[in-house]
């Protein structure tokens, strides 16, 4: 029987970020781990609930954690960085305030037992590869030059997320180096892409994303690797608008770490969603012999 961990994909991974969901599932299945979604999970409230109602912002993730606890899971993988931070913040805030904890208990019907460890799949995979999954690598990534982009919500605030070094995280770098890639030292790895302002003040996102792309290119990146679907969407889909506004054509593919792990494990590239990106990554992957 394969090992199983709980999996909370979040709303985006069922729509605009399908390729992130599909590549993750393919990778974990290949490594013999089943990802189990809790039945009837609901939106965690990112990106708005915390600016609208504090109780709602804490209770929505707690409700989902309760569903996961009821499944009997000890650990949940949350690939969406925004959901990841909302879940961690909910647990953190309830520990800070007895009052909030009580109100949340009222809202979700019981006191959340706090028995579930919240982890991002990049952490889980990095550990798995450090502990032996390395011998399942079928294809070396051949020194492809990658800028690992962590963004905001995995790393900050560090007292809440407890994820690596907040100014110079290395988890994704370590993972991709094990697969044979060359990861770069660059300045914008934890800078903000503008997040959900994409839908309300897109000019901000265009500017911030452009700065990130510019630094990655200056440092010699052939692609940026992300662990968040909002970062991926902003950096990938805005390159046309950036070209118009700033007269700079980056044409830099933006990949998910899970897609590259999938390639290294020898998975069928058709299952990893390389067709879904606006900046086509296939020419680059062909150059490295990773695609036919």
């Amino acid at each position: 029987m394969p090992e199983a961990i709980a999996y909370y994909p979040g709303c985006s991974l069922h729509s605009t970020a399908k390729e992130y969901d599909e590549s993750l599932r393919a990778v974990f299945t290949k490594l013999g781990v089943e990802l189990k979604e809790p039945e009837g999970w609901i939106c965690c409230g990112a990106s708005s609930a915390h600016s609208v109602d504090e109780l709602l912002a804490a209770a929505l993730p707690a409700q989902n954690l309760q569903l996961i606890e009821d499944m009997g899971a000890k650990e949940v993988a949350i690939p969406c960085a925004a959901c990841f931070l909302r879940f961690k913040t909910s647990v953190y805030d309830m520990k800070q305030s007895k009052h909030l904890e009580g109100k949340v208990a009222e809202t979700i019907g019981k006191k959340y037992g706090d028995t579930v460890t919240i982890r991002h799949p990049v952490e889980i995979l990095e550990k798995m590869f450090a502990n032996g999954a390395k011998n399942q690598i079928k294809k070396d990534l051949g020194k492809i030059k990658l800028a690992c982009y962590y963004g905001c919500m995995l790393t900050r605030p560090p007292k809440v997320t407890q994820f690596d070094d907040c100014e110079d995280p290395q988890t994704m770098d370590r993972l991709l180096k094990q697969l044979g890639a060359e990861t770069l030292v660059w300045s914008y790895k934890t800078d903000c892409c503008g997040a959900s302002l994409a839908l309300s003040e897109p000019d901000v996102v265009v500017k911030l994303s452009r700065d990130i792309l510019a630094d990655a290119r200056a440092c010699g990146a052939e692609a940026i690797v992300t662990a968040c679907q909002l970062c991926q969407a902003n950096l990938d889909t805005r390159q046309g608008q950036i070209a118009k506004k700033f007269n700079e054509n980056f044409n830099l593919p933006i990949l998910y770490f899970s897609q590259l792990v999938g390639l290294a494990l020898g998975l069928e590239p058709g299952k990893l969603g390389f067709d879904k990106h606006l900046v086509d990554p296939k020419p680059l992957l062909r150059k490295y012999g990773l695609l036919l």
């Binding site: 905001c152 919500m153 900050r156 605030p157 903000c192 503008g194 959900s196």
Partner: peptide, 11 residues
Amino acid sequence: WLCTGCETCAT
């Protein structure tokens, strides 16, 4: 309204 919630300030 312009704050993206990136938490750089808090960090």
